[in-house]
Amino acid sequence: MISHTAAITIYTKTGERREMAEATPYEEQRRRQVEANKRKLEELQLHHLSAAIREAAAAAKPSLVKKRKARVPLDVADAVMEPVRRSGRLANLPDKPVYREKVPDFGMKIRRTYGSVRRDLTNRVYATDDARSYAISKAEDLEQELDSSFPIFIKPMTQSHVTGGFWLGLPIHFCRKYLPKRDEMITLVDEDDDESDTLYLAMKRGLSAGWRGFAVQQKLVDGDCLVFQLIEQTKFKVYITRASSYYESED
């Protein structure tokens, strides 16, 4: 094997003789290259930059132990905490949407003496076809007897009118021709001249608040038929023909 070094004899200050290996041109060039690279690294200060990056990463690393938040009792939270709104545009909106039908204030209270009574829907009365037809026939006969100078319409009762929803839709043509164009209080007068106030919804063309109290008070059931006579601009005289009269007529 050929060696790339040669022996050099040197003498120390004490006169001691030593032999050192003389570097070849290749090793000398490699040594100079290493020193040059070292100087460049020192000029760039990469070791300081690397240490700074490690320190920043260690500082930004979140703690593995999560901080526990103090629990607030539900009743205290509901009483004290307020909902947070991130948008100023929504600041004036209500916390929860309200879908309940709002009754306009017309300066009078709707009679609710009977409106608070809830009917047992399991005890619904269903009229037979014969009884229903009989009530309608009697209502048509009554219509012929009433004063024709007052607008009149006939309305047979179904379950949605007298139980559950308690909503009474009125004939569209009648509403367009005779009833107000905006929401208005309408008075219903029964055959004993007792009055009940109801809310007429012009857009929906029907009676809403107050109709339930009237239906319960008059003990209306499925199959009954009503004759509405408009005696004033916002007042109906109401006549009732009962489906139950069908069974009395057979006796």
Rank of each mutant, 00 (worst) to 15 (best):
V72M: 14
S116D: 07
Y126E: 08
V84R: 12
I172H: 12
Y99F: 14
E140K: 13
R111M: 09
Q45T: 08
S50I: 07
R132D: 03
T5A: 13
P151Q: 05
E250Y: 07
V189D: 06
S148M: 08
V80M: 08
L146I: 06
V103M: 06
L121K: 09
Q159E: 06
L146V: 05
S160I: 00
A215H: 10
T158I: 11
H4W: 12
D141G: 14
H4K: 12
L170Q: 07
A60P: 00
I53P: 00
R124Q: 02
V189H: 09
C175H: 00
V125W: 03
E16D: 11
V227K: 07
L46H: 06
K237S: 12
K67L: 10
M81N: 11
G15S: 06
Q29F: 15
I110N: 02
S196M: 10
M203E: 08
E101T: 14
L146R: 13
V84M: 09
K67V: 14
L90W: 04
L201S: 06
R205G: 01
D120Y: 04
E248L: 09
L44C: 13
A91G: 14
R71S: 02
I154Q: 12
M157F: 08
Q159K: 06
D222F: 09
E248P: 00
E184P: 02
T158C: 11
A131I: 04
P104F: 12
R71D: 01
I154Y: 13
E16F: 09
Q33A: 11
R71I: 10
Q233W: 05
I53H: 05
Y114M: 08
N123C: 14
R17Q: 14
F166N: 13
S245W: 03
T158A: 15
D192P: 03
R182P: 00
P73G: 07
